[in-house]
């Protein structure tokens, strides 16, 4: 599904964020990317999502090289990858329903299909009662659920999460992680970048640890440390 090959990323300011990363993630896997701030977790996700281009090496998603992907093709790549953000990135002037529906409108879905799929996904994340509310009227956990609903509404094969529990309390964090496991069980590859030790130790999955842009550990059903 995802193959990362001698990947290096140097930012314009000379900072070497990723250094010789080799990683293979199979379909349906659930992977934690752990490490302290600046270890390269977010950069790796950005490269997968084609927000940044590799300096050297390459990333292949379903054998498509992201290094040579023309910028016109980027939107179509992104439609196959759902992304969840720490700060949710919701449209403040749109309702919960519209925020989720927007991802489908972008893909030219028919109206009745939009209504059907958005309703289904909002039921899955438990927000069917709050469809017509605006994001600002909801709690942090609920806003993160909207973000998740938007990321998975078109059933993308890959789901990326950048610190999904970073701004949530422990109970809510746990609920969100349960939701991500549920999504993984529906045969979606899930990659979660986090430094939430409690979560990683509680819900055991494959753990890839990064430090100074290198992979220092890769263990099945591993713990944070």
């Amino acid at each position: 599904m995802i193959r990362i090959h001698y990947l290096e990323k140097e930012y314009d300011n000379g900072f070497l964020a990723l250094n010789g990363i080799n990683l293979h993630i199979a379909k349906d896997e659930f992977v934690y990317l752990v490490g302290s701030s600046g270890a390269g977790k977010s950069t790796l996700l950005k490269l997968l999502f084609s927000v940044e281009k590799p300096t050297s090496g390459d990333v292949f998603i379903d054998s498509v090289s992201l290094k040579t992907l023309p910028s016109k093709q980027i939107p179509y790549l992104r439609r196959n990858i759902g992304v969840i953000f720490q700060d949710f990135k919701l449209l403040p002037r749109r309702t919960v329903f519209e925020n989720v529906a927007f991802a489908l409108q972008v893909m030219h879905y028919q109206r009745y299909r939009i209504r059907k799929q958005v309703t289904q996904v909002l039921e899955l994340v438990g927000l069917q009662e709050k469809m017509s509310n605006f994001p600002s009227e909801l709690s942090g956990g609920e806003q993160q659920r909207i973000c998740i609903a938007r990321a998975i509404v078109n059933n993308p094969p890959i789901l990326l999460a950048d610190e999904p529990t970073g701004s949530l309390d422990p109970d809510t964090s746990w609920e969100i992680m349960q939701l991500l496991s549920k999504i993984n069980a529906r045969r979606t590859t899930v990659i979660v970048a986090t430094h939430d030790k409690g979560i990683v130790d509680d819900i055991r999955k494959r753990v890839v640890a990064l430090e100074n842009g290198r992979i220092i550990r890769d263990s099945e059903l591993g713990s944070y440390n």
């Binding site: 999502f49 939107p75 179509y76 992104r78 990135k89 927007f102 991802a103 972008v106």
Partner: peptide, 16 residues
């Protein structure tokens, strides 16, 4: 601008 950024992130084309 944030809205535009989010549109790009969910895979909207520039035309759209």
């Amino acid at each position: 601008n944030d809205e535009i950024e989010i549109m790009l992130l969910v895979g909207a084309t520039k035309y759209f």
